[in-house]
Design a protein around this nucleic acid. Structure first.
Lengths: 253, 253
DNA sequence: ACAGATTTTTAGGTCCGTCCTAGATTTAGG
DNA sequence: CCTAAATCTAGGACGGACCTAAAAATCTGT
């Protein structure tokens, strides 16, 4: 459990994982995702097939690694908003910043990588899954903020009837919590608004991701894309402004 | 090619297809989707495995049949709106009507069916895919309406710079049109607004579907669900109202 | 430094969905 | 009735996901 020395075992695990990931990426970009088998990757990395599966349970995980940051990103941007900023404002600002940084999280993946994804139905489906988890994480955050801060904006007015028994997220698309959370019955009025706001913000996020991906596939360079997407983002977020600009405004400390 | 007599061959095809679908549904509800093999279904329907695959290329198609109506539904509701009604108004009205009719399209599938879907990651993913196609169909419609009617509402103002070269939809998630549509480059400003509106309406649609599914899984009966969802829908659509209530209002004929 | 405990890797195999092929069967239309 | 077309069948190939037992490597306590 030593922290600084890391241990030889842990070190080798990282090396093995990295080696597998590297060879996989190379083969995917070279031959395409579906035309590369796990056996190919295992052979290139000189490990057993089972070792590949061990590190990356699903084949898609080899191409879409670091998905945890992606899933949490949207919610974290909102969680870190300064006093006076709304959820929409936080998302808008985070997107502009990611645009400046050419952040892969919003779609700056490079042309070959974008093509690899677009050419594989499996990867497209997995990306959809990740986007939904991204929305779920945001919905979870906004829902808990109702309880913690008595979130209630003016656009619906009657969130007073909220019975804040629930703050748990929904059962995930795949995994799932078999015993249905006790929310179910009648979720308080505020919960549905939080979910609706999360749905709208996530929809904007997905739309912008797709636009960026489209331009990447069309061969535009990153600077050109960043410029165009800044304007696109402005329009998309402006459209949401009258609906949710007063939702989840962080109260001045 | 006779229309009224249908032909013996066509008749038998329908019977075979129906028999396979019926046996599949029964087995799925009984044992669950993932614990039922195609061989089981073929055996129950007394046909060869290949015949099952022949009628239903993917296993998911056996559980989520009639997906064409589902995919087209949202766009058709908007396409059929009367003069003076906006896209949002059309979707809201269509949803209320579907709620009255206990329409399976919005999630009235029965408890066992809902559980079958929720228990299978494969089916959940496929359902997501269908929802996205539903959004794409709507986006396609709203985009074409820009060209046809010079759609330009007041919320963005500057849709005048639209260069209506494009009306085609995006390449579908799975299938796809390999040669990128020539839109790509710089889509006119109106196109992105149309896509954003479609994204918001589809997000609301998905959210309401999930809420209905959640209640179904919780064991609520259809009347109880319909009542609660009517209120939920009102809140969700009300939230969108200030953003897009003036978008795509059909001009009085 | 060594022995036992723990973790990781390996090799083998099973199961199932998807895809392919060739041949048998059935229907449609002359 | 006979030919052409479509459909169904059987069998197998392939790949991804999963399982098991055993081998190899690393860690731990003495």
């Amino acid at each position: 459990m030593s922290i600084d020395t890391l241990g030889l075992r842990e070190q080798k695990k990282r090396e093995t994982r990295q080696a597998i990931s590297d060879h996989a990426t190379q083969l995917f970009l070279q031959r395409g995702f579906d035309r590369t088998t796990i056996a190919d990757i295992a052979g290139a990395a000189r490990v057993a097939k089972m070792t590949v599966t061990n590190y990356f349970p699903r084949k898609e995980d080899l191409a879409l690694d670091h998905h945890e940051a992606f899933v949490a990103g949207l919610a974290e941007a909102v969680a870190r908003r300064p006093p006076g900023e709304s959820a929409l404002g936080a998302v808008r600002r985070a997107y502009a910043q990611a645009l400046e940084q050419r952040d892969p999280v919003i779609g700056f993946t490079g042309r070959d990588f974008a093509r690899m994804i677009a050419d594989s139905p499996t990867l497209v489906a997995r990306l959809r899954d990740l986007h939904e988890q991204r929305e779920e994480a945001l919905a979870r955050l906004l829902t808990t903020e109702i309880d913690r801060t008595g979130e209630a904006s003016d656009e619906t007015g009657r969130t007073g009837e909220t019975d804040p028994t629930d703050a748990t997220g929904r059962s995930s698309g795949t995994g799932g919590t078999p015993p249905e959370d006790n929310v179910g019955g009648e979720a308080g009025g505020g919960v549905i608004v939080a979910r609706a706001v999360a749905a709208q913000l996530a929809a904007a996020d997905r739309l912008l991701f797709r636009e960026l991906q489209r331009r990447t596939l069309a061969g535009q360079d990153d600077d050109e894309i960043a410029g165009a997407l800044a304007e696109t983002a402005r329009r998309v977020f402006d459209l949401l402004e009258p609906a949710i600009s007063t939702y989840a405004v962080r109260r001045p400390a």
